[in-house]
């Protein structure tokens, strides 16, 4: 029953975007997010929208996967638009009883919608085209300078990798435990809230116990292979900036410059 959940939404492929270095992708995504907030002209938004659409097409990932990300925050988008639309001050352009729409409100609402949609699209493309492992590798590499201030960068990245690695295992385990306890007559579906909460105990306790056991086993297995943190550790996959990464940087920076210029050009 839990098998259908997809976690981390990585969508394997071999497109230009897929092949970019994870560091490049993380940085470019961040730049894109900053641009989304810097832009304040219609043309600027149009340009950003066109750009992200183009990137989405290059990835060859079906558009419905990207729209799925939007669905989850649809409520949030509608709510923000609603408040901006009706609760802003400015010249009234439409009124019905106590509800009124002002020109400023309309503008704010549209900008907000555009920003949120672009934001979700941009980050979706990052997570859809980068495997979780590559993502943590990239984060580790990017955070390396913080080692100087004693931030345990490698350890944090390792924790993330391990956590990601164990999500499917834990899902399988939960599935198994639910089945075993159901076979012993636990009823998860009926009864009041307290009864239902109580029905979770036979699931949660075995799950915790097995997680601790797994953690212990894994720690032991890692120690047996002489793992002792990030000191002097070499990697199997060395991250390398290639020509396509520079192309990516170039295109995005150019886009940034244009968007910022457009902010000052009045049409």
């Amino acid at each position: 029953m839990f098998k259908d959940i997809t976690l981390g939404q990585f969508f394997p492929g071999d497109s230009f975007v897929h092949r970019l270095d994870p560091r490049t992708k993380i940085c470019l995504s961040l730049i894109f997010i900053v641009l989304v907030f810097l832009a304040n002209s219609i043309l600027g938004f149009a340009l950003l929208g066109g750009f992200i659409l183009l990137v989405a097409i290059i990835t060859k990932i079906p558009l419905k996967f990207m729209i799925r990300g939007l669905k989850t925050i649809m409520f949030f988008i509608v709510l923000t638009a609603f408040f901006n639309l009706f609760l802003s001050t400015g010249t009234v352009i439409w009124q019905w009883r106590f509800l009124k729409i002002t020109d400023r409100g309309l503008e704010l609402a549209l900008t907000m919608i555009a920003r949120l949609v672009l934001l979700i699209f941009g980050t979706s493309i990052l997570t859809l085209t980068t495997s979780p492992i590559a993502l943590t590798d990239g984060i580790e590499a990017l955070l390396r300078p913080f080692k100087k201030i004693k931030l345990p960068v490698h350890e944090l990245a390792m924790m993330m990798t391990i956590a990601l690695r164990f999500i499917p295992t834990l899902i399988d385990e939960t599935d198994k435990i639910i089945k075993a306890q159901t076979a012993r007559g636990t009823d998860f579906e009926s009864g009041n809230l307290i009864r239902r909460a109580k029905a979770l105990i036979p699931i949660l306790i075995p799950l915790f116990i097995s997680s601790f056991r797994r953690a212990d086993d894994l720690a032991l297995a890692m120690e047996c292979r002489c793992y002792n943190g990030g000191e002097n550790r070499t990697r199997m996959k060395v991250l390398e900036m290639k020509a396509i990464d520079f192309v990516g940087w170039g295109v995005t920076l150019a886009l940034g410059v244009i968007v910022i210029i457009l902010n000052y050009v009045r049409i």
Partner: peptide, 11 residues
């Protein structure tokens, strides 16, 4: 039904 390696069901 007793499942495979059922020890995890103890709680």
């Amino acid at each position: 039904l007793v499942m495979q390696y059922p020890e995890y069901q103890l709680f």
